[in-house]
Structures are given as structure tokens and as C-alpha cells.
Design a protein around this nucleic acid. Structure first.
Lengths: 157, 157
DNA sequence: CTTGAAACTTCCAACTA
DNA sequence: TAGTTGGAAGTTTCAAG
């Protein structure tokens, strides 16, 4: 990046705070809240996108309504840590639609997957036929979410 | 809910698919893609919101740009499982801005937290001064994310 | 589900401090 | 450089068919 590093001023911060919770707010509503002109808000948001602060705007769905009732965390241990093995595993799991997130971890296992399925049977199918059959896997331990008591996409700013 | 259960037709499904990846698309662009009128798209989206499929629309930020470089998973074991203890823990961690998510789990520990901080020092501070001091905690084990190889908010539909 | 039109929003150019 | 204004272009919203 050849860009001047520009710290975010309070207006930028407030815009990010608000858009993280509700990106469907209009520029006019923002301009009223922040006491700036609409054009200023427009320009600030354009900058925040161009500078890479805002990656995208997405709709958050109710997963239970679309039949993703079970969330599992799968802790995976591999039998070696060559670049090929790591890359092979990452690429393979990234292709599975059940896998929402994949993290390489420090500590006593190598990866954690967050897996969303309709129910335990579907998880079992994923586990047996998609995850456990991948090469170089030593162990997989599965943990299931009983309830989600906080679920936030917005970082405090 | 006293609502008729209405299965989503292919147009609704396609709208949800698209909005999960890019909610800033205009109704006109959607109407061109899906070969429906703008008013139809408008009405479909209104319904999907009213029926609770779409919970909200949010901006996704680059966490590294806003100084959340470290993601930790904290596995917590409590010394008892009375309603008071569980509720007390959930309420307490929900208030901490470092805690993005809190899950009650099946298995050998009670909760998993996903914690976002600027660095290891900030995590240590959170761990020592906010998490470990809560009542009824038996153990906390922390695991740190080395790299995020898949990160998806959109469920396949 | 569509059309059509009013109301509203976005976006840009010209300009100011 | 950051901000404003005004207006053209584009989008949303809704009543009627």
C-alpha cells in the first residue's frame, strides 16, 4: 500500500460504529446524526471503503429459519505440518459448504472449524464422509453449541 | 409465531443468496439478474425481512485495520451448573466488548468465547482482569488463531 | 406480478473556507 | 484538504390494474 496512513477521526469512527450495526441507514439519516452534509457522509464512506476499512455489506440471516440448527466446532489434529499438508487441508475444507470458518490455531490441535448443519445427522454425514476422509488427519474432536448467548459481528470502535 | 409457514421459492432463495454476499446491490440490479420487476424484488425483500429471514444488514470491517489483530477462543469450565451460575456468567461476559461471541457447549467444558483484542498483552489483561475474576470459574483454557483460512457469514442456500 | 409515477437518495461538479 | 450546495441521475416505494 502506498497510501498515507490516516488515523480515523471521530466522524469516521462514528460512521463505522453505526454501519456495523445497520448498514441500511441512509446517508441523509447519517448526516442528521453526525451534523455533516450528505455529500460529506458520502465522501467519508467512499474513503472508508477505498482504504479497506469496510470490506463489504451483507445481510445477516436467521440461521434457524434456513435450517442451520446445529453449530459444531471441530478441532482437527494433522499428522504432519508440511506446507503441502496444511495447504491441502485448508483448501479442502474451504470448499465444503458446511464449513463457515476455518482457523489455524496455536496449541494442542491444528485447526478449528465452525460447521453449520441442519442437525446431528447432517453433521455426522459431514464428519464421516467429508472431514474424516481427508488425508493426513490424525484426530477430530467435535463440540456442539447448546446455545448462543452473544453473537456480534460489530467490533467496538 | 402465528404465521403460515411458507417455503422459500427459488426467487426468494436467490435473493437471500445474493444479499448475504452483497447487501448493497440495488433492487434494479437484482431485478435484472432475476428477471423480475423492481416492485417484485422490493416486495420479496420486504417479506423476507418481515418473516424474520433477514435479521439485519451490516458492514463487515477489516479487523486488522481497526486494531483487532488477535482472536482467541477461551474455553471455560464452571464449578456448578445452577441456573444462577450459568446466567450470571453469560450476562457478565456479554458486557465485555472483547467478547464477540459466547456459546454454551456440550462436552468437556461449558462455554467457548471468541475474544477479539489488539494483541497478546490486551488478551492477557482481559484474561486476568475480566474473565478469570468472574465467580464460579474452575478453569479457562485459551487458544489463539494463527490464521483465518475461511471466514464466511453467508450460509449456503 | 407488473406498470408508472411521486418521493427520496445517491452522487458529482463547482465552489468556499 | 475537508467541507458545502444544488441539481441530475438513479432508486425506492406504493397504489392501481
Amino acid at each position: 500500500m502506498n497510501e498515507t496512513i490516516r488515523d480515523l477521526d471521530p466522524t469516521d469512527q462514528e460512521i463505522l460504529r453505526i454501519l456495523q450495526h445497520d448498514a441500511s441507514i441512509t446517508h441523509k439519516q447519517l448526516s442528521d446524526k453526525l451534523h455533516k452534509s450528505i455529500a460529506t457522509i458520502h465522501e467519508r464512506i467512499r474513503k472508508l471503503k477505498n482504504l479497506g476499512y469496510i470490506l463489504k455489506t451483507v445481510a445477516i440471516l436467521d440461521r434457524k429459519k434456513i435450517n442451520r440448527n446445529l453449530i459444531a466446532f471441530s478441532q482437527v489434529l494433522l499428522n504432519d505440518h508440511t506446507a503441502e499438508t496444511l495447504k491441502g487441508f485448508e483448501d479442502a475444507v474451504a470448499k465444503y459448504p458446511e464449513v463457515m470458518e476455518c482457523f489455524q490455531m496455536t496449541g494442542s490441535f491444528d485447526f478449528v472449524l465452525r460447521v453449520a448443519t441442519s442437525d446431528m445427522e447432517a453433521y455426522h454425514d459431514f464428519y464421516r464422509n467429508k472431514l474424516a476422509i481427508l488425508p493426513n488427519i490424525t484426530t477430530v474432536q467435535s463440540f456442539f453449541v447448546l446455545s448462543e448467548t452473544k453473537s456480534e459481528t460489530a467490533y467496538p470502535i
